[in-house]
Amino acid sequence: MSDTSSPAVPTAFAAASAAVREALSRDDLAVTEIPAPGGLAPHALALAGDVVGASGRADAELGTGRFVLLYDESAPEAWGGVFRVVCFAQAPLETDLALDPFVADVAWSWLVDSLDAGGASRHSASGTATKVLSSGYGELAAQGDGAQLELRASWTPTSTDLAPHVAAWSELICTLAGLPPTVEGVTLLASRRVGRD
């Protein structure tokens, strides 16, 4: 993790890092700063987010995600700029919803709609949405069938105001987890469960 108090830290990265750290996330998501993965860029900052359960404690089993801000003054060609956001969000899914061929498209639209609603200016977005179905056997037979929906995405922000980007990521995790969206124009899947009991 980069130390933004060091004089070697570029001003733009320091400003963007401050915006990330000061960004507001949803109350039903516990967000903490974590060590950034090494080797991706000269400067990086990372956040982890876990959905808060009915007990009031964060529970990654209900929904989890990571937000990583990368900065490289050389402006890698693939990024199209000096910044790159990489994010991940995952939550359990009802098995009947996992069979829906459009559920991955819906997950991507939740991210795009949340970014647009918050005015998160960006370009060069890319990502994958993955549905995972599982069945328990033997000693795990009692677990039965299960499913998860996972979204991995990256994009290039066009300013150091990263607060809307963090807010969109926060919204994505909570929406994947089945919590009511707070962004206008984003809706839940009809039979999506909220696993916060």
Rank of each mutant, 00 (worst) to 15 (best):
L45S: 00
P101A: 09
S17V: 10
C87V: 08
V31P: 01
P180V: 12
R66N: 06
E77F: 05
L45M: 00
V103G: 07
S154A: 14
A91E: 00
A153N: 09
A147G: 01
A167E: 13
A190L: 10
K131G: 15
P101S: 10
M1N: 05
A8S: 08
A142P: 04
L188G: 13
F67L: 03
L47D: 10
A177E: 01
G65E: 00
E139M: 10
G195F: 12
L62N: 01
V186N: 10
L47W: 10
A58R: 14
G65C: 00
V132S: 15
R122V: 09
R196C: 12
L133D: 10
D197T: 07
W108R: 11
S134F: 06
D100R: 07
S109N: 13
A190V: 11
D105M: 09
L162F: 14
W108C: 11
L45H: 00
L111M: 10
V85A: 03
A147F: 01
S154Q: 15
R152T: 10
E22I: 03
S25M: 11
W169V: 02
R26L: 15
R84T: 05
D59I: 01
L172Y: 01
A120G: 13
A15S: 09
V106L: 05
A117S: 15
V20N: 04
R152D: 06
L188M: 11
A23T: 05
T4G: 04
E22K: 07
G53M: 09
L188I: 12
L93D: 02
T182L: 11
E184F: 14
A142Y: 06
G138C: 12
A44L: 04
V194P: 15
A129M: 12
D116K: 09
A163D: 15
D27F: 11
P76E: 14
A30Y: 08
L133V: 13
T187F: 13
E150R: 14
D113F: 10
L140M: 12
R122T: 08
A46F: 06
D72Y: 10
A120I: 14
P7V: 00
P35T: 07
G119E: 03
A46N: 03
S74R: 09
W155D: 01
V20L: 05
V112F: 02
F67G: 03
A91H: 00
A91K: 00
T4D: 06
A44M: 03
A141R: 05
F83L: 08
V183Y: 01
A168D: 06
F13N: 00
P37A: 08
F83N: 06
S25E: 11
V51E: 04
P164D: 08
L40H: 09
L69I: 07
L69M: 07
A78R: 13
G63M: 02
P164T: 07
